[in-house]
Simulated assay, not measured.
Amino acid sequence: MTRMSFADAARVCLTAKYATFSGRARRAEYWWFSLVYVIATGIVTGIIFVTETLLLGVLLLPFIVPMLSVSVRRLHDTGKSGRRMLIALIPIAGPVMYLVGMTVDSVPTTNGYGPSPKAVGHLVG
Score class of each variant (00 low, 15 high):
Ala28Leu: 07
Ser22Lys: 15
Ala7Gln: 13
Asp77Tyr: 08
Leu60Gln: 02
Leu86Glu: 05
Trp31Val: 10
Leu56Trp: 11
Tyr37Val: 11
Val50Thr: 14
Gly42Met: 02
Pro108Ser: 01
Arg27Lys: 14
Lys80Tyr: 11
Phe6Cys: 02
Arg26Phe: 12
Val120His: 07
Gly125Asn: 15
Leu14Cys: 09
Glu29Pro: 00
Ala16Gln: 14
Arg26Glu: 14
Leu54Gln: 11
Ile47Val: 05
Met97Asn: 07
Gly112Cys: 02
Ser71Ala: 12
Met85Arg: 01
Tyr98Ile: 07
Asp77Gln: 13
Val107Gly: 03
Tyr18Met: 09
Val70Phe: 13
Thr15Asp: 02
Leu99Trp: 09
Ile47Leu: 05
Ser81Leu: 05
Leu61Pro: 01
Gly82Gln: 04
Pro66Tyr: 06
Leu14Tyr: 08
Gly121Pro: 01
Pro91Cys: 03
Met1Ala: 05
Ile43Ala: 06
Phe33Tyr: 04
Leu60Ile: 01
Val70Asn: 14
Thr45Met: 08
Val65Glu: 08
Val120Ser: 09
Ser5Ala: 03
Val100Glu: 07
Gly46Asn: 01
Pro108Trp: 04
Ser22Phe: 14
Gly121Cys: 07
Tyr30Arg: 14
Arg26Met: 10
Phe49Lys: 11
Val44Leu: 14
Arg11Ala: 11
Tyr37Asp: 11
Leu56Asp: 10
Leu56Thr: 13
Val107Tyr: 05
Phe21Trp: 13
